[in-house]
Structures are given as C-alpha cells and as structure tokens.
C-alpha cells in the first residue's frame, strides 16, 4: 500500500487485521492496517468482493452472527478499546457503533416508535424525555418537518428516501460514536440520495462515519478520506481529493477511472 499519513485523532485503529469466513482457511481481509479519523467521513471503495463491507461489519462485530467467521489476526481498536477482546460485549459495542444498511429496514411500527426503540432498550421510559429525544433525532436526520404531523403513522408508509433517513434517525437516537453505512443510497433515487448525502455532511460534525459505496462520485462528494480495497488488501488510503485527482497506485487509478476488468 502507498505510504499513509498519520491520523492525529483516530477513532478506529486497525493493526494488521485479517478476517476469514471459513475459520481461517482463506482470508477475505488480508493484513490491513490503517487509522480512521474522528468526526470525519471515511469512504471504502473497491470492486465487489474486495472485502469492504466485510471490514465494515467487523467494526460492530456483525460478523459474529456467522459461526465460521472470525478475525484471524491483528487488532481493531475503537476509542482505544480492542473490540474483539473477550470482555467486550457485542451488544454494548453496537450502542457505540451504529449501522445503516443498504436496504432501508424500518420496523413495522410507527415513525415515533422506530426512533424511540433503541432509547427504550436503553431504559428511557419517561414520555417527555422520549419525545424530546425522538424530535432531536428526527431533526438531526432532516426528517422532522416532513413527519412531525404523523409521528404515529406507520413508518412503512414513508417513501424510500424518508425510510432511510428514519433509519439514520433511529441510529443517531442512541448517540453512537461511529456510524457505519453500507451502501446507504444504492436503493434510492437521485433526489433521495442527495438528501441523504446532505444529511451525512451535517452528521460529520457529531459522528465519525464510515461508508461503503460503489459510487465514485458519492465517495468524492461526501468523504474526507477514501480507502481503496482490492482482493482483501488495502491498496491505497488517503485524502479523498488526492486519491481521486492523483492516486499513487496504478491499481487505484485503473479502478477509479474505469480501466478495471
């Protein structure tokens, strides 16, 4: 990988991380080391199967749900804590590391209850506290003005873009430190995509965001730093403008300029 600069305040640190889906027979992620900065947007790009979503799911241990999957070497630290240490509870970790998925997935509940769900699990029962937190989250997700008059309506009645922003509101309601986004706009039209991108721009002030995207334009528009992966390896990681204007690695240049294949 090309030489990377030192990140002064990383929120996530990867040190020689390898990951396997088959108990270590083959590594899907291979010896990856880099730092992800706090309160910035970091984009993961690369062809299908390069390991970018797999790595993203390592950050909140979503891969724990697959029996044969495991980090085979190295260490992932979030806020200085080894997230795979035996003492770390995955559920607790996911309160700090929220996730937004490719396909928006609101619960079949009201708009209000979708956002309040995580808060209730955290033990918040006071109606006034819940209402305040729900409004704050919906405002934070730039959805409040569109739904404030129908908070008790089913979330499934919202448009696709609104449902995705509701999922973001649900994620930020519990005030995580990190938000992982796995192709959050791939099922949205250009207008809804623009709204989500604008939202990401606003959220970067409060949260550290890591986004997987297949859209080069999206990565270049919204991210501060970009990591390019290929066949499980981190090929290049740098400032987004630098990576898209003057990549150091030929494989990066070939991929981002459409010379791969």
């Amino acid at each position: 990988m090309s030489t990377q600069e030192v990140i002064s305040s990383p929120i996530i640190t990867l040190d020689d991380v390898s990951f396997s889906y088959d108990m270590g027979k083959t590594n899907t992620i291979k010896n990856v080391s880099f730092d992800i900065p706090e309160k910035q947007v970091t984009a993961f790009i690369g062809p299908s199967g390069c390991g970018k979503s797999t790595l993203l799911r390592c950050f909140n241990r979503m891969n724990d749900l697959i029996e044969t999957a495991k980090v085979t070497s190295g260490k992932i630290e979030i806020m200085g804590q080894d997230i795979n240490a035996p003492t770390v509870d995955a559920i607790e970790l996911r309160k700090q590391v929220g996730m937004v998925f490719q396909k928006y997935n609101p619960f079949p509940k009201s708009i209000f209850e979708n956002v309040a769900y995580g808060l209730r699990i955290q033990g918040i029962k006071n109606k006034s506290d819940l209402a305040t937190a729900v409004e704050k989250s919906l405002r934070g997700a730039a959805l409040w003005d569109e739904v404030k008059d129908r908070l008790n309506s089913s979330a499934l009645g919202l448009s696709g873009g609104q449902q995705q922003r509701l999922c973001i509101a649900r994620t930020i309601a519990v005030q995580p430190k990190v938000i992982l986004m796995d192709e959050p706009c791939s099922a949205l039209d250009p207008i809804a995509t623009a709204k989500v991108e604008e939202l990401i721009n606003e959220l970067r002030e409060q949260f550290s965001i890591v986004i997987v995207t297949h859209s080069m334009q999206q990565a270049s528009r919204i991210s501060d730093r970009t990591a390019f992966f290929y066949l499980g390896e981190l090929i290049e990681y740098s400032d987004t403008t630098d990576l898209f204007s003057a990549p150091k690695e030929k494989r990066t240049e070939d991929y981002i300029s459409g010379r791969f294949g």
Partner: peptide, 8 residues
C-alpha cells in the same frame, strides 16, 4: 465524470 489522470 473523469478522475485522476483523465480529469487532469
């Protein structure tokens, strides 16, 4: 939407 050397 050229990037890298194509954009340059």
């Amino acid at each position: 939407r050229p990037v890298a050397s194509d954009l340059r």
